[in-house]
Design a protein around this nucleic acid. Structure first.
Lengths: 130, 130, 130, 130
DNA sequence: GTGGTCTAGACCACG
DNA sequence: GTGGTCTAGACCACG
């Protein structure tokens, strides 16, 4: 269940990384689960195989997945990397906004607004346990 | 006192917008204050005049500043725009991370980390009053 | 002065990384030196610009170079990354051979054989000072 | 006692060759010893029979083992080939690193690091006697 | 002009 | 079939 915003600011390979990391963070993908073959996923999503390959390559270099020659790509043991992927932009934007002069309280209230909605049930119990 | 990081991540014109909005948010620039001439600022910062022009243009389009032909650019009355500029990326990244499966608690702890440091004294008293 | 072995075992982008790291290690490229534009280098070497882009991208992600939007790529301050790039294969092969049962003495004598020749004069004084 | 690392870097057939050469170098396999049948070994290791066949084929081509049609594969008299197999990558990487500008001292210290650990007792007494 | 991204399509090693 | 690499060529944002 990967959704891409083709019309978009962030590059496709980056969205792809985020989506996959999200599935790992939510526990929908667990250690040693196999990712869809790059070409299959590319076809499903209507994008170029190279773009998927780029995303997979980045995730591998960050230790979030590992690839086995001629077999496929699999989810790594450590979830820390996936977690970092999902939060690094948030962290940077937090720093930028705070650094520019936005008071902490204001950021907190925005965070409250944005995090009041429901999330998918599978997310329950997800912790930063790595 | 505008600081730019030429090295990567966000484009210079964007950093410039953020810096100016920051000065407005912190009250260092107030209504009807005149901004430095684009060419002068460009020279001071060692960047391309077109880059400054682009930043000014975006800020004007968003109602954060207004320009008077042949005279210069000035800070608008409403601070809401500047405030929105500084927080919209934070808001989007908050939504993205939360939506991807990062629990609220994790975001809060990152926010605490990033906002524990001191900010410039001028920031005191800044509120989301628009 | 970059030499590639097109007929080769190791991928071009990897050879390119090694060559550039070598120039940094030998002091031929120093902090803030500008690398040739990806397209120019590609043309000079008779390879595809994407291949150069891939090499530059990897070097950037490893902090060995940094890119400035629309300007070019430059050598980073830290030489440690370049140094690591040049030695990581050697380290892995050392571990593999030793682990497989080759005695340390045998490896030492091979190392002596291979390192007896002259190296380029510029190399003198190069140290692992990072 | 052959150990394979399915995860990435070197291909399985190559690891297999290294493992077998290692056993020969350490004296665990001696002249005319019979290697396990390809299919049996493949089953034991949980890998594709073709992979074992490829490894055996390469070792035979290098004179490290010899095959008797319909009977099996056996260890050759000369250990030189096995020894060369285990060290040729190390030699090449030594040459590459030194050639690229890494000083001999740096390689020596890496070698010291990697060869400080204990090796299997059987290794004692192995020499470059071919 | 410069790097960054993407597409389309090809070939290869590995298994 | 699978990932890895490479080519050729295009478009874009940035400056």
């Amino acid at each position: 269940m990967i959704r891409l915003d083709i019309t978009g600011r962030s590059p496709i390979y980056e969205q792809l990384c985020r989506e996959i990391c999200g599935e790992i963070a939510r526990g929908l993908l667990v250690e040693n689960d196999r990712l869809p073959a790059a070409r299959v996923l590319a076809k499903d999503l209507g994008i170029n195989p190279n773009t998927v390959a780029k995303a997979y390559g980045m995730l591998e270099r960050d230790g979030i997945i590992y690839s086995v020659a001629g077999i496929g790509c699999f989810v790594s043991k450590e979830k820390a990397g996936a977690y970092r992927w999902l939060t690094e932009d948030f962290r940077r934007k937090t720093r930028e906004a705070f650094g520019a002069g936005v008071p902490k309280d204001a950021l907190l209230s925005i965070l409250e607004e944005e995090c009041s909605g429901e999330v998918s049930p599978q997310t329950q119990g997800v912790k930063n346990d790595d």
